[in-house]
């Protein structure tokens, strides 16, 4: 067991543990904080796969911008001390069973797949570096890149229009 596998194990346990705590904690602010821990461990996975650009973008966009937006909204609504109403215990159980069944099916589908036992390259390779990705982004994918700016503009206008008081 080398260093890479130990790091993979630690990051995996961290991601799964914090994701489970995210969906089980009662306080929405705690949920947001656990989700940030999950995003950081996913960024750690990206670094382990040598996708450094995506790791940094993941931290800046997800753990930074999006989660701050969530925290702002939760604190704006002052939800952090209101308990969720009592809900059906059976509904919770059925939701857990349904998710578990999906997990079982997807993992069982792996058994006969072609990708089984193939290796993924960790720690090396330079396709995830910003030089390669930037070159590709501004040559082959320049049209979608520019269209995404229009998407952002429309999302901004949409958010303002929806959130505006009458």
């Amino acid at each position: 067991m080398n260093v890479t596998e130990i790091l993979f194990g630690i990051l995996t346990v961290m991601a799964l543990f914090s994701a489970l705590l995210m969906i089980t904690s009662k306080n929405p602010v705690h949920s947001v904080l656990w989700l940030i821990v999950t995003f950081f461990s996913i960024s750690g996975h990206y670094i382990l796969l040598n996708a450094q650009f995506l790791a940094v973008v993941n931290i800046i966009v997800y753990a930074g911008a999006i989660m701050v937006l969530f925290l702002f909204v939760i604190m704006l609504m002052n939800l952090n001390n209101t308990a969720e109403p009592k809900k059906n215990r059976w509904l919770k159980l059925v939701g857990g069973i349904a998710g578990g069944c999906l997990f079982l099916v997807l993992v069982a589908a792996l058994k006969d797949s072609e990708v089984k036992r193939q290796f993924t390259e960790v720690k090396t390779g330079d396709i995830g570096l910003i030089k390669n990705l930037g070159k590709e982004l501004f040559s082959t994918y320049v049209v979608p890149f520019e269209i995404s700016s229009i998407l952002f503009l429309s999302a901004m206008v949409g958010a303002v229009v929806i959130g505006k008081k009458e």
Partner: peptide, 27 residues
């Protein structure tokens, strides 16, 4: 590193998300 580990990790995270969508009531 085997790709299987990454597939299982991603599927587990996805299913945790699905369980959260199905069981929680807070939007």
């Amino acid at each position: 590193m085997f790709i299987d580990y990454y597939i299982i990790l991603s599927v587990a995270l996805f299913c945790i998300g699905i369980v959260g969508v199905l069981t929680r009531r807070n939007a």
